[in-house]
Nucleic acid binder design. Structure first.
Length: 851
RNA sequence: GCCGAAGUGGCGGAACGGCAUACGCGGCGGUCUCAAACACCGCUCCACGCAAGUGGUUGAGGGUUCGAAUCCCUCCUUCGGCACCA
């Protein structure tokens, strides 16, 4: 006994610090992950994970995002796919610029140093990235094609210039939303009050694809994401209606205020109008005696955030501008207000207010003592009953009232009739609007793709000729301690000869939103060095769309919608053949800091995995992150429990290398469970292994990594019970070990590779990588059972469990349940009202009336 | 505020109308050890009970159903997004 008791001294211990670097080096040496994109002998599988922003260090969140994707890549390879799993860096953006302003360095230097560091850190994960296809968006070889595509979109009429407001600091220029701080909205750097400034900016016409973007046909995306995108696009059918302004002392009238409404049936109930503070007619229509108050209100409104303005909770504010409009259906003069709950960017920036049938209008009318006139009445409601709330519901049988000759018509039909009638007079037309706005891509910043446009006094807006691309960012940069765009002061960049007339002209200094970079990067991965265009059609035709995209749910609308837009625009430019970029999407959750907040350097809650990797190894960290919970959930970071994963791997190590070992502390060590023959035990092991294989396969496919690992733990626990028994090491045991290693290989690639190679060595076979093995097949015969246990409930409460033949009929189950002594005792001679044999015999419920 | 998601033991979580709490952490007890650590074995939702057992429990309240953590309604809390963070 003594020589078998302490196995730990006999068998080499699991030491990831030795095992992991060895295999990482070996894999790199063999080029195991260099995908041959021209290999057509196997089906292709394009697995894409959202590329990271090079913030400096890989934190635990990057591991959380990447390692399950890597497990999936390995899982698919074992299924015979030629897997392309690329990586790159989303290298433009605000943080690099902030760092440069702070340190006086160059955003390029900071970014590239970070990328180099992150590349190194990525390799410690054991991730199987195709590094030779890497893309760095801040490299001219990438952003040149942003410019090229922009010019193409310009030609297609998808890019245009329009004046719009930005948050502006007199010292630091345009501010991002996160740079505006505090309730009184001040600049984060200098503390100055933030203003609005109107600038001419570049837009992409996303709304041109609004209807197509509403269709998710042919793609398998999570329902909540589709719902969010649908709501974001926000298609509304209705009508645009013209209200003429009435003549007054200060104004001759006759201007048309165009409004959009989804409820033309309520037109007779319009008792006032509201213009957005930014509306062009505010200035024109305001009466002289109202001027001061209106100007003050407009100023104040422009300083508010949109979220604030749209809040239905905040008390409604607004100012009458001292002008009236004429309701086209009844000729009534109704007052015009300016109020911040109407937004310039939606519809026409003006509304007809129907307080009786719109909650916000109701609140406003109540606040300002304006008339509320019911024009839609539910059955049983009088036309002039007092209203305590807006009536917005749609019910059967509601009729128009107080609506002239439309009285008595059903609301829907009445609405159509009113629009038709006004349309005949040229005062209305049916119209569809979207909440979706065109994409403002102009950024008044240095660290982004320069927009390739030149302004010439004679020729106007002139696109940079394709052959002059890329328009490069100047290599020196001078922020002069301020946060505004240094390109503005760079004469060498600014001054350029007009491509048409050759006269001195001025370059655009705005750069592109970084969402432009991320809207098509996966196409470039396929041919990062391709010189004849942004994408190599020969590659995209084979490899795209992406089979599986994984990334954070925080990108549900913006990035994922822009990418769909960009794909459709590239398709219409003849560059690619498909309609959608990502066939299947999975949104994983976000790892938060220990404080429950988003991880960021400024909060100081960034978790560094390096220490954990040094202590436990990459495999343990990978498994721990997958085991924490469902991948789509995320949550606050805590390393509590990582020891359990490490113990699990140690047990796998012991099972594989030391099947005959026994541990102190187990009185039954080395003995089969009482009453179990060796043949029984062998069958148990086989059944457990194959049942686990069946479940684990499904879990990988459904991204349920946490339960996948739990099931592998169960299998290893079962096997541990048989360790040291005569069973250990025989055929069934060996098969179970083999399956355990294969199932674990995608998730814990290093330890399984090590154990696999040692098995081969012991068996005297040549080395082959476990990651080149095929995924094993389930032997359903091994799982088959002859008897099973069925829970028996009485009135929904568990009272007994009975053992029945696996193929028992419902009648047999019924009889067996009633034969149970415990059930009989509760029945006490009464007969049950009914007996439910549920779920194909999974459970029996005996129902008694007054139990 | 609006849109989307989530609330289950001391903690992370499992259970896709059918045995609530799998798996792991932590805790308690034990084996080994001079001792500790490691490793291993057992117990561990709450209440009452020596026990067999009985009752309760999935954020709160209501509903549908033979049966609800799961479906429906109302509410509360937390997280993501709201167009210049990426």
């Amino acid at each position: 006994m003594t020589e078998t008791t302490d196995s730990r001294t006999r068998v080499e211990r699991y030491d990831p610090t030795v095992v992991e670097p060895r295999w990482q080096a070996r894999w790199a040496e063999l080029g195991m992950h260099d995908t041959d994109l021209h290999d057509t002998s196997r089906p292709k599988y394009y697995l894409l994970t959202m590329y990271p922003y090079p913030s400096g260090d890989l934190h635990i969140g990057h591991w959380y995002i990447v390692t399950p994707s890597d497990a999936l890549a390995r899982f698919r390879r074992m299924h015979g796919f030629n897997v392309f799993f690329p990586i790159g860096f989303d290298a433009f953006g605000l943080p690099a610029e902030n760092a440069a302003i702070k340190s006086g360095g160059h955003p390029f230097t900071w970014t590239m140093a970070n990328i180099e560091n992150m590349r190194r850190q990525f390799r410690t994960m054991g991730a199987t990235f195709s590094w030779q296809h890497e893309v760095v968006t801040a490299d001219p070889s990438y952003y040149r094609w942003n410019q090229w595509l922009f010019l193409r979109f310009m030609e297609m009429g998808l890019a245009y210039r329009q004046r719009s407001a930005v948050d502006w600091c007199p010292n630091d220029g345009t501010l991002a939303r996160e740079q505006v701080v505090g309730p009184d909205r001040r600049c984060w750097r200098c503390g100055e009050l933030v203003e609005k400034r109107d600038l001419d900016q570049w837009y992409l016409k996303t709304t041109a694809y609004a209807d197509e973007l509403l269709s998710f046909e042919g793609i398998d995306w999570p329902e909540p994401i589709k719902v969010q995108q649908t709501n974001w696009i926000g298609r509304s059918e209705g009508a645009e209606i013209g209200f003429e302004t009435a003549p007054s002392d200060h104004h001759p009238g006759g201007e048309t205020i165009r409004v959009f409404t989804t409820r033309p049936d309520t037109l007779f109930g319009a008792t006032f109008m509201v213009l957005a503070p930014e509306h062009q007619l505010v200035d024109v229509l305001t009466a002289p005696d109202r001027r001061a108050e209106v100007d003050a209100y407009v100023d104040q409104a422009r300083r508010r955030t949109e979220i604030d303005r749209l809040s239905t909770e905040r008390e409604k504010t607004g100012v009458a501008i001292g002008a009236d409009a004429i309701n086209p259906v009844n000729g009534e003069r109704i007052p015009v207000f300016v109020a911040d709950y109407v937004l310039a960017g939606y519809g026409t920036g003006a509304i007809m207010a129907v307080p009786a049938h719109d909650e916000r209008d109701f609140a406003f009318a109540t606040q300002f003592g304006l008339p509320i006139r019911r024009v839609v009445a539910a059955p049983g409601t009088g036309a002039d009953d007092d209203m305590t709330d807006a009536y917005v519901a749609h019910t059967e049988g509601e009729r128009l009232v107080n609506s002239g000759r439309f009285d008595g018509m059903p609301a829907d039909e009445g609405g159509r009739a009113i629009v038709e009638w006004l349309a005949g007079q040229g005062k209305a037309e049916p119209k569809v609007t979207y909440r979706l706005r065109d994409w403002l891509i102009s950024r008044q910043r240095y660290w982004g793709t320069p927009i390739p446009v030149i302004y010439c006094e004679r020729d106007g807006i002139v696109p940079v000729p394709y052959e002059d691309l890329p328009v490069r960012l100047p290599e020196t940069v001078d922020y002069r301690g301020r946060g505004d765009n240094p390109l503005q002061g760079d004469d060498a960049f600014l001054t350029v000869a007009c491509p048409i007339c050759g006269e001195p002209a001025r370059r655009e200094t705005d750069t592109m939103d970084t969402f432009v970079d991320s809207s098509w990067y996966w196409y470039r991965y396929l041919s990062p060095d391709f010189d004849d265009g942004p994408v190599d059609r020969a590659m995209t035709d084979v490899w795209t769309p992406v089979d599986q995209y994984t990334g954070g749910a925080e990108h549900a609308v913006m990035h994922l919608l822009y990418s769909r837009f960009w794909t459709k625009a590239m398709r219409d430019a003849g560059l690619i053949g498909e309609d959608e970029p990502f066939k299947r999407l999975f949104n994983q959750g976000q790892i938060l800091g220990a404080d429950g907040e988003r991880m960021s350097k400024s909060r100081g809650n960034v978790e560094d995995p390096d220490q954990l990797v040094r202590r436990y190894g990459a495999d343990t960290v990978r498994l721990f992150l997958m085991f924490m919970g469902p991948w789509d959930q995320g949550g606050p970071w805590s390393p509590t429990g990582i020891g359990g994963i490490h113990r699990f791997l140690n047990r796998v190590w012991a099972l594989a290398l030391d099947p005959h070992g026994r541990e102190h502390g187990d009185a039954d060590a080395g003995r089969l469970p009482t009453g179990e023959s060796q043949a029984d035990a062998a069958a148990t092991i086989r059944a457990a292994a194959h049942r686990t294989l069946r479940d684990v396969t499904e879990d990988y496919e459904g991204f349920r990594f946490n339960t996948m690992i739990a099931k592998l733990m169960e299998l290893s626990n079962t096997m541990y019970r048989y360790r040291g028994t005569p069973l250990a090491g025989d055929t069934e045991w060996d098969e179970a070990i083999r399956l355990l290693l294969l199932m674990l290989a995608p998730a814990a690639p290093h330890i399984t590779e090590e154990l696999w190679s040692r098995r081969a060595e012991t068996a005297g076979q040549p080395w082959t990588s476990i990651h080149g093995e095929s995924w094993p097949e389930v032997d359903t015969a091994a799982i088959a059972v002859s008897v099973r246990e069925v829970p028996v409930q009485v009135n929904g409460k568990l009272r007994d469990k009975i053992t029945v033949p696996a193929d028992a009929t419902d009648d047999q189950l019924n009889a067996a349940a009633l034969a149970s002594p415990k059930v009989a005792a509760i029945l006490a001679g009464r007969s049950p009202e009914r007996v439910v044999v549920a779920g194909g015999g999974k459970l029996i419920n005996v129902v008694i009336r007054d139990a």
